[in-house]
Design a protein around this nucleic acid. Structure first.
Lengths: 238, 238
DNA sequence: AATATTAACTTGTATATACAAGTATGTTCA
DNA sequence: TGAACATACTTGTATATACAAGTTAATATT
């Protein structure tokens, strides 16, 4: 039994619950319908429901308590920029505004932020996009993302404003980020950053170079994130 | 069916496999016995085996491939300073030298780096120690650690030079770090850091405030790490 | 009225089974 | 010899069921 996209039921349920949490339909402290209720409403059995819930637990969306239920934790603070998810889920949608500085365009690789590239990646080139993330009217993240040019229909024409790249990958191409590696360092703002972040020369900036592994074998995303941690420190759990 | 410790079978299996990997019985690239084999050798059913394997996958010890098997990944490199372990395992022991600046001493809490303290923690006070970590003769980490003063026999008299705090906790007190939360930000070096790291004023420094959860309920460790990422960027996987 | 008990929930764990889907290997046929 | 196929593995997903264990609230008892 699969939905139109061919997703297995447990993923469908996971997506729906996850969506309901990120959309605020369930708020922090709320209790999800019991496993048995979810069984009947979604016409699946308990192990299937539990598989979906396990994932939500793992990613920090909910917490389970025996005898009580599944308690919504809200935006997964456990899955901040330092672990699995992107900046959107690290901060919470409400106050996050994403501004596209450079729309995705097809180009050749110069360098993947120090990460070695596979041969096929060099051949096909990549999409590159630059974004500025603004929290409560204040620019906090400036990131450059490189996506290898495999078959991603209509990729450049999609709307990236206020939508997470991860979300677009997941919902439109069924590609999920399953892990990755990252390098972290503290630097001082260069002229570009001084302009974007509206800070003085010498201002400390947190730099994050990431290579992200996806559910599609051999397909990686590369990004470089600059973060003004003056007002918003990065938060994560492990 | 439980073992002497009352652990459920899936945890017993998990512990055993995990042990075999960390002990080097299985090496990177090896393929674990198939799920069905593990079923028969451990007298459990497949869902139980899969539950144990799921955990190993999640923690990065193995990786599964449909049609092939469970491939051992070796020691989870995903456990760098940004996730589970301390600085020692993030860098590798070889070139890391630890210098104790202030030996552990019993004191009262001023503040746990912004993390809220439990009442009992405030009452019992804490051990505080300061260390400087030197890589290839170059100071890279300066950290302040606070350990609540529960019953830790001979804690202040132990030798912390060139030994990880985590290792001491694990081997001497059977306390393991099981998770935690952290805040990250970029700052500029203050006078103390300028001195320790031998850098100029205005030098960017990476600051990491961590609260670590242990296997002992209600027992947390707190630390603040300052890192000169000029030559050694922090590296981690997720 | 306050307390102890019971019942009805919740999640946690485990079995037994079935089929789908990916991988590797051998076998057959041209 | 070489390519196509069949087979026997592997993990992935799902059902149906059962009981244990923790939580909550109603009920019975004192």
């Amino acid at each position: 039994m699969t939905d139109k996209k061919g997703l297995p039921p447990y993923k469908v349920l996971y997506e729906q619950l996850r969506r309901h949490i990120t959309d605020g339909l369930y708020e922090k402290g709320d209790i999800l319908p019991s496993e048995n209720e979810l069984c009947t409403t979604h016409n699946v059995t308990r192990p299937t429901v539990r598989k979906a819930l396990d994932r939500l637990v793992h990613e920090g969306y909910i917490r389970k308590k025996q005898g009580k239920g599944s308690i919504v934790q809200g935006q997964p603070q456990g899955v901040g920029i330092l672990s699995l998810s992107g900046t959107t889920s690290a901060i919470g949608k409400e106050n996050l505004e994403t501004k596209i500085i450079i729309k995705p365009y097809l180009t050749t690789w110069e360098d993947a932020f120090g990460f070695p590239l596979l041969n096929y990646e060099k051949e096909v080139g990549c999409y590159k996009l630059e974004r500025l993330r603004i929290i409560n009217k204040q620019p906090v993240f400036y990131d450059i993302t490189m996506v290898p040019n495999i078959n991603l229909p209509r990729f450049t024409s999609r709307n990236f404003e206020n939508r997470s790249l991860f979300e677009i990958m997941r919902t439109n191409y069924q590609i999920e980020i399953v892990g990755g590696e990252q390098k972290l360092m503290a630097i001082t703002a260069n002229e570009t950053m001084q302009q974007y972040f509206n800070v003085k020369p010498g201002h400390p900036i947190l730099q994050l170079d990431r290579k992200m592994e996806t559910s599609k074998e051999g397909f990686f995303l590369y990004s470089q994130v600059f973060c003004n941690t003056n007002d918003y420190g990065l938060y994560g759990t492990f």
